[in-house]
Design a protein around this nucleic acid. Sequence first.
DNA 1: TCCGTATTGAACT
DNA 2: AGTTCAATACGGA
Length: 165
Amino acid sequence: MKTQSFTLPVSTSAGEFLAHYSQRGLAGLNFPGRHSSVRAAKPDDGIPAEVSEWHRTTGSALNKLLAGQKQVKFPPLDLAGTDFQKSVWHEMLKIASGKTKSYGEIAEAIGKPGAVRAVGGACGANPIPVFVPCHRVLAANKKIGGFSSGLHWKRRLLESEGIVL
DNA sequence: TCCGTATTGAACT
DNA sequence: AGTTCAATACGGA
């Protein structure tokens, strides 16, 4: 059987995000593209009820996060990656809103203090930015570092959470 | 096996 | 104070 995936648009104040769902949960999230018209599924056609519910939660969570809301409810996350990457992502999920950690802190937290750069790599491979708060991870001297989907977004998200650089 | 990476800390100018 | 350099861990080609 083939892995079914569904892509649904998420309307936010910042634009239309695209959420990818697998059978296990939210598998990916894309920032609003220019006019990258990705084929999005219709909410009422072939979409399992479960996915619809996840999507509803996703939309709510995303808007709240963009508004700077601290505690939001997440849909199940289907994080696909290597063991190391999952460790990194899991560690990042534990970062409280409004707080930041350095790449070194993450590396140390997962038991590999020297893997600072590898952590950065895992972050770049993060399929679900915003939910997996890779934007809360800064360099050691509080520099913003980088952001795959656009540094622009990282800065915006940080400001939404009241984090001042 | 080699290269790139969203780092880091120390040395150098 | 700004910049360069080597080291380190992991993923992808």
